[in-house]
């Protein structure tokens, strides 16, 4: 509990409302939501040591409250296979980000294990002016961006709501295992939605939250990227 409080307090102290990916994941992990293991390296040596410990391949990402679009600024390197590659990537990330955002405060570089290919899912939370927090479910990539194939429910959701909102999207057959693809772990997705609903109920200071992507496998689901945005209006933080 102390850790959770201190992240929010730290962020507030810095006058920020957008949490870094690293901070967001830490909070979500404490809430029991499955996120990919992510460690923060503050030096190149640390980055190498962590990579060796969690095992290759790994992904490196810049951790900075001032860098919103991590990929566009060269702050992300994926599928690194060796110590040499991590060493090089670490230098390059810092060089590029510093060039792009000379004044950015840099917390370090996050290291996470590269996961095998799974079905990409997105789950998000936002606030509706009439109903309060709502939760969204969809398939990642073009399904959400282009086809807007998503479903919503008002928080709090019950088990039945969670199941129905997953089945409601047009792309649902993909999760069931379309054309020989193995089926995704739907009951873990249901649990994730329920956990997130409870988490949001207890944290009215959160304005928006997005897990994108979540990778769904036959026997588990895991969020690979996460973003939490806090309310600026203190009035809205009361539950």
């Amino acid at each position: 509990m102390m850790g959770k409080l201190s992240i929010y307090d730290q962020v507030k102290k810095e006058g920020r409302f957008i949490l870094t990916e690293f901070e967001s994941k830490k909070i979500l992990k404490q809430a029991g939501i499955p996120v990919v293991e992510t460690k923060l390296a503050k030096s190149q040596q640390e980055a190498i040591a962590i990579s060796q410990k969690i095992g290759f391949p790994v992904a490196l990402k810049i951790v900075s409250p001032d860098v919103i679009h991590k990929t566009d600024s060269g702050g992300v390197r994926l599928s690194l296979q060796s110590v040499a590659e991590v060493k090089k990537a670490y230098d390059e990330i810092l060089r590029k980000v510093k060039k792009e955002y000379p004044k950015a405060l840099i917390h370090g570089v996050s290291i996470q294990k590269m996961l095998p290919i799974g079905t990409e899912v997105i789950i998000g939370v936002s606030k509706d002016p009439q109903f309060g927090p709502v939760i969204m479910f969809g398939l990642g990539g073009i399904f959400v961006e282009l086809l807007k194939d998503v479903s919503f429910r008002v928080i709090p959701v019950e088990r039945n709501d969670a199941r129905e909102m997953i089945k409601e999207i047009k792309g649902f057959p993909l999760l069931e295992g379309y054309r020989g693809k193995s089926p995704s772990d739907i009951s873990s997705l249901v649990n994730l939605i329920l956990k997130l609903s409870r988490f949001i109920e207890g944290n009215p200071q959160i304005k928006e939250l997005e897990l994108n992507p979540i990778l769904a496998y036959p026997k588990r689901v895991v969020a690979v990227d996460a973003r939490i945005i806090l309310e600026e209006d203190q009035e809205k933080t009361k539950s």
Binding site: M136, E208, L209
Partner: peptide
């Protein structure tokens, strides 16, 4: 909105 969720809701 900053997220897909907000934009689609």
């Amino acid at each position: 909105s900053a997220s897909h969720t907000g934009a689609l809701a």
